[in-house]
Design a protein around this nucleic acid. Structure first.
Lengths: 137, 137
DNA sequence: TTGCGTGCAAAGGTTTTGCATGGCA
DNA sequence: TGCCATGCAAAACCTTTGCACGCAA
């Protein structure tokens, strides 16, 4: 991937413009096409894989086997002190800056001899919005 | 699944006898056959799905798309105040009783308006043993 | 010109579904 | 007897790979 091509530029640009979203490869492919791009499905997969390996994007597993989700990482360094909260209901991923995470990692290391991987750990639950909706149902 | 059948008994018995392991559906299927069982692959999938929905077994995603892993839950009630630490290296799942988890859940609820799901949240990292081995590699 | 990037089609692997059969209650 | 569970085969899915063509450098 040392060459700069139209396809890779469109893909990366699209991911950057959707930093707040987490999308499956299929969604990325579909929306790029809606926007007039002609990138092939294979190319989307190949780039997502590459970008993930480089740490430029994040990868989440969905739990219902409907494919992995990807999301652009704005500032890789900044995410070391993040929680990643994922809502089981709406699927939204919430980045949360918080020092409590450091305390947690410290505690787990000291008390449980376990080295927390901030990048991979995702805290599952239900967000405020969905919690409110749940009660109506 | 209200009937009791030979297949479901064999499957559940097998899972109980392998509480310490986490296995893919394919592994469960294969080992049951090695043990003389004739359970079909479809049945294994259907039961694992059902048991997971009931909370009788746990389900983990593998990250490399090689299929979900399942593991029997010994005492579902006891796990409410647990951390689940999963080692990315050896795959071992560590149950850890700890009040710090409650503090974490409180904090996330109060400060981030997010309702942590203890059952589904798994903390990823590297265990002591694998951490030591890593250095040798 | 060189060789990487692309994309179609096909393969690979996991999981689900349709449908007829067999077993439990 | 009535209905659920089973299991084969096929389908549905997501993802990867082979290969020839085209474009970037």
């Amino acid at each position: 991937m040392s060459y700069k091509t139209k396809q890779s530029e469109e893909l990366i640009e699209f991911l950057k413009q959707n930093k707040n979203r987490h999308m499956t490869a299929e969604e990325v492919y579909g929306e790029l096409h809606s926007n007039g791009s002609t990138v092939g499905r294979t190319t989307v997969y190949r780039h997502l894989e590459k970008l993930y390996a480089e740490g430029a994007i994040r990868k989440f597993l969905t739990g219902d086997n409907s494919g992995a989700c990807f999301q652009y990482v704005d500032n890789p360094e900044a995410c070391h002190n993040h929680y990643h909260l994922r809502c089981n209901s709406c699927g939204r991923l919430i980045h949360t800056d918080c020092d409590f995470l450091n305390e947690l990692a410290e505690h787990i290391k000291d008390e449980h001899s376990f080295y927390l991987d901030t990048e991979k750990t995702v805290i599952y639950g239900v967000c405020e919005h969905c919690k409110a909706n749940e009660k109506e149902v």
